[in-house]
Design a protein around this nucleic acid. Sequence first.
DNA 1: CTGATATGCTTTATGTCTAAACTATTGACA
DNA 2: TGTCAATAGTTTAGACATAAAGCATATCAG
Lengths: 159, 159
Amino acid sequence: MSAALGLDTRLTDDHHESLRLWLRLLTCTHLVEAHVRKALAKEFKTTLPRFDLMAQLERAPHGLQMGELSRRMLVTGGNVTGIVDQLERGGLLVRTEDPADRRAYLVKLTKEGRRLFGQMAAEHESWIAKLFSGIPKREQRALAESLTRLRGQLTRETP
Amino acid sequence: MSAALGLDTRLTDDHHESLRLWLRLLTCTHLVEAHVRKALAKEFKTTLPRFDLMAQLERAPHGLQMGELSRRMLVTGGNVTGIVDQLERGGLLVRTEDPADRRAYLVKLTKEGRRLFGQMAAEHESWIAKLFSGIPKREQRALAESLTRLRGQLTRETP
DNA sequence: CTGATATGCTTTATGTCTAAACTATTGACA
DNA sequence: TGTCAATAGTTTAGACATAAAGCATATCAG
């Protein structure tokens, strides 16, 4: 945690401004991730990737193809296969045939999956709110907007 | 009841604002990470965690204990063991005895490790600069400052 | 000095992630 | 229509990550 602090303080040169920003991004993300991962494990015996995948499905009631899940989660296809396998074994989602393409599945939450995700999402939101509670809402909004521009830049840069 | 309801919806909005910020952070970090990971693999046949570990050692010429590496990199000790093993096998660092504590090592870059890291760090910095080049320096600085406050909040929140 | 406890590191079991190779289906096109 | 590249998904091998248990050494209280 004092990790990037040491590195950052050394990078006072203006040429390193981007590098410093990147290290801050990385550190903040890791800190939040660690907190959420532990909370999900403790409270729900589950993991962040599984929660993430369920969150994607929640927003797509008609189901998503594996590849679409992969793109939205920014992970590779093989990875999605494994996570879907586990959630399917747990009865939280199902692979259904895609009537339009016999190579593809449409992955959908089960009723139990929706029920459980509802519980988890509510808790998750309150964890996040608490973690960010020391930052004024105005600043949070400004941060989010800057990051939106950055995201646009990054997706244009790396298609 | 209606008073509580109004408060509730306002809190929920705040929650969503934080959640939005968190998702942006995560997405931007993943995009940059993916880019850097691929570049490190392609140009130097190495990985981000190894690069990261070497970066920590570079700033500590007298060497670092495994546990200190673990704390600075925000990962568990067992993880550091594996990465140090690989870099040691590759001749890029050495475990030396800690004269002050016979349980501990001091891990140090070798001359070859310093040489290689120098090359990688220069390239790495230019990749990052390019990825962030669409964001004005002034905005980058503001972003980094906001993230510094957030980092402070997070390390206080999750000790 | 001695025993209890804490610390530094490694090992193990499990889960996540990538890249690359593989199977099956689709779709374009000559 | 027959061919063949592209696409959807899975599998494989290997690296990274955690938590938890284990071993060796330090440290401290009595």
